[in-house]
Computed example of a mutant assay.
Amino acid sequence: MQKRAVFSALLVALPAAPALAGEATGGPRAELRGGVAWTEDHTDPVLGIAAGYDFDLGDHTFLGGEVSGEKILADDTYVELALTGRLGTAVTEKGSVFVNGGYTFTHHGDGPHVGLGYEHHLGHGGTYLSAEYRHVFVDHHQSNAVTIGIGTFF
């Protein structure tokens, strides 16, 4: 219940951010990410990739989708695949925040996920750094992950 309240508050606050904004970036993108995933039982490193497309909606906002694959670096795990939609807005000239949600296919079962992230664009090219939190809701196996990444828009 508390997680829903936090996510709802973020969705309500997101439209206020354009007052601080620069330009949103759109187009195809690819990203390499790594971090840590945890459950109630244990914590493991994670490594993954993502590819997606963001549509520039104007007013410094974007809407996009991505497909990703992540491997929890433990012996008894497989690559987890996810389909994710994201909605974001620029909060500085080079930084954007976004909320995301989608569906994750895991070796423990399949389920929805929600998350929150930040991208910081480097220089004038398409390269960016990212940080993201994601929570996966699988019936008997909920998990969390925090990742950092480096990516590029094409």
Rank of each mutant, 00 (worst) to 15 (best):
H141K: 00
G52I: 05
S8C: 01
T152F: 11
Q142W: 01
G123C: 12
A24W: 11
Y118C: 06
V46D: 05
A13W: 04
E66W: 07
T152E: 12
G22C: 12
Y133W: 14
V36F: 02
G117Q: 00
E132L: 07
M1R: 12
L11F: 11
M1H: 13
P18H: 10
E31A: 10
N100C: 04
D56Q: 08
G111K: 01
N144A: 12
G64Q: 05
P15L: 03
S68Y: 08
E66V: 02
G126D: 08
G34L: 13
G27Q: 06
H124Y: 14
D110H: 02
D110Y: 05
H107E: 15
S8L: 14
A90S: 15
H135Q: 02
G117S: 06
V79G: 03
H113G: 04
V146T: 00
L20K: 05
V36S: 00
P28T: 08
V6R: 02
E31D: 14
Y103E: 01
S143K: 00
F62D: 00
G102Q: 00
G151Y: 11
H141T: 00
H113Q: 01
H120I: 07
A21L: 07
A17S: 10
L63P: 06
F153T: 01
G22R: 00
A74C: 09
A5Q: 14
A19H: 01
Y78H: 08
H120L: 13
D54V: 08
E132R: 12
G125L: 09
G34T: 07
A19R: 14
E31T: 09
V79P: 04
E119R: 15
G101A: 13
V146M: 01
K71A: 09
V36P: 05
H121T: 15
G35S: 13
T77C: 02
D139C: 04
P15H: 08
D56W: 09
G149V: 08
K71Y: 14
A9L: 10
A30P: 05
F98G: 04
Y78I: 00
L73I: 13
D76W: 01
G102L: 03
F7I: 10
T84Q: 06
V12D: 09
G88I: 04
T84N: 02
A37L: 07
V99L: 09
F55L: 14
V79E: 02
H60C: 10
H113R: 04
Y128I: 12
E132D: 13
K94E: 15
G88S: 02
A16S: 10
G22S: 00
V146F: 00
L129N: 07
R33E: 15
L57N: 03
G64T: 05
H124E: 15
V91T: 06
F62K: 04
K3M: 11
G69T: 09
G34N: 06
Q142D: 15
S8M: 13
G101S: 08
G115D: 11
L47N: 12
F105E: 09
V46G: 03
P112W: 12
T77K: 12
L83F: 09
L129I: 13
E93V: 02
E119V: 03
R33Y: 14
T104M: 07
A82C: 02
D44F: 15
R29K: 03
G123N: 14
A51M: 09
Y78P: 05
G101M: 06
T77Q: 13
A5M: 06
H113Y: 02
